[in-house]
Design a binder for these strands. Structure first.
Lengths: 190, 190
DNA sequence: CGAAAATTTGACATGACTCAACTGGAGTGG
DNA sequence: CCACTCCAGTTGAGTCATGTCAAATTTTCG
């Protein structure tokens, strides 16, 4: 049940059997149907989610009432509002399944317990965060240096399969332009 | 010499004297004059910097040859290109002192040694990264939901002192618009 | 099959950029 | 301590990338 997480951890640190047991005793497993929310704005951000299967997005609703996708996540990524998680406040973001999903959940209080008992996991989570933060830095770089059209082509080249999985209007907001504009880019040049 | 870092760590985990000694034996201390670079694009990103004093920025040079500031950092922040640091590749960013600065440096190889000997620091760095990543998520949110003018006023309200310390053209590029435009915002409304 | 959601298309609007010229202040060196 | 330069900031005119809105079309899915 938790084997995909255990396998992911094994890429970074080596756990023995008893450590794995401690960890697994503190996890839960949840399924989310397409469009269901893992976490909503305003809810306590005290849980993080490891995506076992499927695809999720992080979004907000702006003052005009439209949704803006800030991030996607697929298999083997941890997601949550880390500022809320860090400060024990409520989430500023929605996290939603955009396909049927399965996720492993870890509450902050349980995380603290398991880190106490299995300190090796500090390294694991540090590395996961280091990678996520690095990805976030690059994302900002792309937003700053590329035009809307370039961002679209760049994403299309780097993640062609992914673009099939996700509705265009979510991609458009992820790349920070309107769905109509995306449609026009596609019309201009397959 | 390293007391500001030791104090910062103490906010997150408690080290005993011998642990502090191990840590300090693996650090170096560097001063940077205003406009000097801590790290340049293309150089190995194998070092992270803890800002003791002063202010730095992370920037890139875009295809038009103009600089774009992606992030500022002041006292008590760690900076580096974390993707490069993670993957042992070269930095995609410039990191530059915008005031005379003092920084504590930690090389990746030394970081690995100290984490081996003082595992408590895994927690410290995990928390630092968790916070940085959270801040980065929020930054993307602001870029997406606010107009250029709103981003300026928001920043002005939240960091009035900081705005005094930094040239306007850097603020403009940090907020992702032109210096001329910033000048016009200011003209329209103190 | 029908309703709702997603995408496309076109006309029009505008926020922000570019470029160029001007102003003012901070260093620098004679 | 003045004169000169240079860089940051300002201002205005013209432009363009992308947004908005509304209507038409296609796709999805109960």
């Amino acid at each position: 049940m938790y084997s995909s997480l255990v396998a992911h951890i094994a890429k970074f640190v080596t756990l023995d059997e008893s450590e794995k047991e401690v960890l697994c005793s503190l996890l839960t497993y949840e399924k989310f149907k397409k469009k269901e929310h893992l976490l909503k704005e305003g809810q306590s951000g005290n849980t993080q989610y490891f995506i076992v299967k499927g695809c999720t997005r992080q979004y907000i609703i702006n003052e005009k009432g439209t949704e803006q996708t800030l991030q996607f996540a697929i298999e083997n990524w941890w997601v949550t509002d880390y500022l809320a998680f860090h400060n024990n406040t409520s989430s500023q973001f929605y996290f939603q399944a955009i396909e049927n999903c399965e996720a492993i959940t870890l509450e902050k209080s349980n995380m603290e317990i398991v880190l106490e008992k299995v300190p090796k996991l500090e390294k694991y989570f540090r590395l996961v965060l280091q990678k996520s933060y690095g990805a976030s830095q690059i994302r900002i770089k792309y937003l700053f240096t590329m035009s809307a059209e370039e961002r679209y082509h760049n994403m299309n080249n780097r993640f062609p399969e992914f673009m099939q999985r996700v509705p265009q209007y979510m991609v458009a907001s992820y790349l920070d332009f309107s769905p109509e504009f995306l449609s026009k880019i596609r019309a201009g040049k397959t």
